[in-house]
Design a binder for these strands. Structure first.
Lengths: 212, 212
DNA sequence: ATATGTGAACCAGTTCACAGCG
DNA sequence: CGCTGTGAACTGGTTCACATAT
């Protein structure tokens, strides 16, 4: 199989989300045309993206929503539950733990760690905060492949390194700052400040006009 | 001036962040080579990106960190404070309000809104939650150009529409789901679940190997 | 000697356009 | 007839390579 472009992979969850909504709305069939209109993408792009993985549509009709949803679930590896290890249970970490969006999608924080002795042993939700030194054993025994990093920026790289040595293959990093991961490990950064900073680039030009 | 590619704009905050760190480390000068090594980008890309905005380097030496930092601040419009309107003060909204990363970068939540009568009038941090119906007046009088959306997904599009009619030009959306904005308004989505879903695509293939 | 700035060459990813199937 | 799937054409963004400045 040819290597799938990075951009395709980042659009698949978008398709998945849109199709889940369509399914809820009891739409049985959708054309690349209509899906494209919803997502502001060209029909050709959607068809080409999906063609990397198979032939899921029916000519003259479009895509069966339930079928495509199932295929995407399989392609994205969402047909199982993913356990995750959270590192850092400060304000940010607690917000992540109480975030209701993970569980319904099959993502579950299985263990939470911190280095602060005053936190260790405390219950947060239905998890007990463990000492970070116990992380490698937990990651191995519970077969966790995803780590969530919610520690202060200066500690992030160290935590990431240790998660990786413990066997974690994917990291969701909430700590702003450029972090490195070795080949074969995947990293996503959640950084609202960076998002804002690229927004202001465009605002700066609009601003004067709006002020008049 | 030629239009700046989208990708360039999204890398500028990356440069900005790295340079701020270098400045803290008292590094006076950096070459595109060295900066590229830190950010895992090619030197050529960094030079080309910066060349859209001017000639900031010195041949034979590299870039003066302080100078470039200042230029980027100007380019990104970070040489002022940006007031923001937050909509939704549930769990997520409160987490955003207490997030310490915005203020040091010049982003400040100036007003917070909700439709839930039991929330209105309550103090959250040093802000008083206002009724969402007061949003347009506040956005106008306080010259807010950025809105943060932290309401449940089904309400997001409606809230976005009203923010836009009130004059907001940029939206940071924490509500998962495809939202539309008119031409000239900019939107960024913060969606950790989508980030995870594109990670599992890669994990799915690594997983079996790790299990052995 | 060293590292920038940039036109030119290259390449990946998007779009086109149409054959083929339902 | 409508819409998919896909090779081919195109586009624009990245990388190369070198003239230029210090």
């Amino acid at each position: 199989m040819e290597p799938v472009p990075r951009g395709v992979v980042s659009r698949l969850p978008l398709y998945y989300r849109a199709l889940a909504l369509l399914d809820q709305e009891k739409v049985p069939l959708i054309s690349s045309q209509d899906l494209g209109a919803r997502l502001q993408l060209t029909p050709a792009q959607i068809r080409k993206d999906l063609s990397y993985f198979g032939r899921f549509g029916k000519q003259g009709r479009g895509y069966n929503v339930k079928r495509l949803l199932l295929e995407l679930r399989r392609i994205l590896g969402l047909d199982r539950e993913w356990g995750m290890a959270l590192v850092g249970v400060g304000r940010l970490g607690r917000a992540i733990l109480s975030y209701g969006g993970f569980n319904p999608q099959g993502f579950k924080v299985i263990a939470a760690f911190d280095t602060d002795p005053s936190q260790i042993g405390k219950k947060v939700g239905n998890l007990t905060v463990q000492d970070f030194s116990e992380m490698p054993a937990a990651v191995k025994s519970k077969r966790l492949f995803i780590g969530i990093v919610a520690v202060p920026p200066p500690q992030a790289q160290g935590v990431i390194n240790q998660l990786v040595s413990a066997g974690v293959k994917a990291i969701l990093n909430y700590a702003p700052g450029q972090s490195q991961v070795p080949e074969g490990v995947h990293l996503r950064e959640i950084d609202p400040v960076m998002a804002l900073q690229s927004l202001t680039f465009y605002l700066k030009n609009t601003q004067e006009k709006a002020a008049r």
